[in-house]
């Protein structure tokens, strides 16, 4: 991996350009689900590197542990037992976490300047010191990832180990994965890597094997190799065609700028009315009948 500093490409709630003279390589994490054995070493590595310790939960009778993402669990393995067409049972294990969208809904929805940034290498990072705790990012995310901490009312999620990447290291989960199911590199390299693996899987009978890099969010910087790319929903409900909610686009893209102008126009109309028409005065002698 090339060593790179983290240039900022986009900031939340900022209407002027971010510093953009320098250019860095777009990175990606590639998760090959066909190689994952569900050992959860990535979960442990994530906790360790980021120094987060979730509350001890309870057993839900399934392998998923913890049961869901939280402010203290930025990645979880989701286990699903799936019967495929030929009556074969398959155990599909998906490492869930932030997808680092090229077109991040969280960043678009965020009203606090600089609380969410997108680095030029594609990493979407929350800057908790700027977070107001409003939860708008949760409404913006098409993957249901950000979690508001009940302790400090800030939102947390996977950082793609931006602090490691800035110094030329790979993410903690990729570093620790014993089967090499999690790979990290430039997005270009990872796509090439995936293509080879997909050809392999097809040869072994997985005709629908493919890369998950959904275009609806401009592509992602966490990609999956899926054995059944035609049915991503088999993988614990992975979105087939994730899109930013039209409500969020309308709200942030159209309604709010338009309404902001509207407020200005309303005030201006009042002033113009007063200076052209003049005040509405009652003559004091009107009461004389």
């Amino acid at each position: 991996m090339v060593q790179q500093s983290l240039n900022i490409e986009r900031r939340s709630a900022t209407t002027t350009p971010s510093p953009g003279v320098r250019h860095s390589v777009e990175v990606a994490k590639l998760i090959d689900i066909s190689k994952c054995i569900g050992c959860k070493a990535c979960q442990a590595a994530c906790m360790e590197w980021n120094d987060i310790r979730d509350e001890i939960g309870t057993c839900k009778g399934v392998y998923d542990n913890p049961a869901d993402l939280s402010a203290g669990s930025w990645t979880v393995m989701r286990f699903s037992e799936v019967e495929t067409d030929n009556g074969k049972l398959e155990w599909l294990i998906r490492k869930d976490g932030c997808m680092h969208c090229a077109d991040p809904g969280c960043l678009k929805a965020c009203p606090a300047p600089g609380a969410i940034v997108q680095h030029e290498n594609g990493i979407v990072d929350f800057q908790q010191e700027n977070c107001t705790g409003c939860g708008y990012c949760i409404t913006g995310c098409p993957f249901n990832i950000p979690r508001l901490s009940p302790k400090d009312h800030k939102v947390y999620k996977c950082t793609l180990c931006s602090d490691r990447i800035a110094t030329g290291l790979e993410p903690a989960c990729a570093k620790t994965c014993p089967t090499g199911a999690i790979m990290f590199g430039s997005k270009k390299e990872m796509i090439t890597q995936a293509e080879g693996r997909i050809a392999d899987l097809k040869e072994r009978g997985y005709q629908n094997a493919g890369l998950y890099d959904p275009k609806g969010v401009g592509g992602t910087h966490v990609m999956y190799v899926l054995q059944h790319a035609d049915k991503p929903e088999l993988y614990s409900g992975l979105a087939k065609d994730p899109q930013l909610s039209p409500l969020v686009i309308f709200w942030k893209g159209i309604a709010k700028p338009l309404m902001s102008y509207g407020l200005g126009v309303a005030v201006l109309t009042g002033i113009m009315h007063y200076v052209t028409v003049g005040p509405n005065e009652a003559e004091e002698d009107e009461t004389e009948k």
């Binding site: 709630a13 900022t14 209407t15 009203p111 606090a112 300047p113 609380a115 700027n130 977070c131 107001t132 705790g133 409003c134 708008y136 009312h153 709010k256 700028p257 309404m259 902001s260």
Partner: peptide, 23 residues
């Protein structure tokens, strides 16, 4: 308005910053 559009975010300073405004 502080949360309405970035152009108005400065108003959050009147209430002690973003988190206080949100609270």
């Amino acid at each position: 308005l502080a949360f309405f559009h970035p152009a108005f975010f400065f108003l959050s300073n009147l209430f002690g910053g973003g988190p206080w405004t949100k609270i």
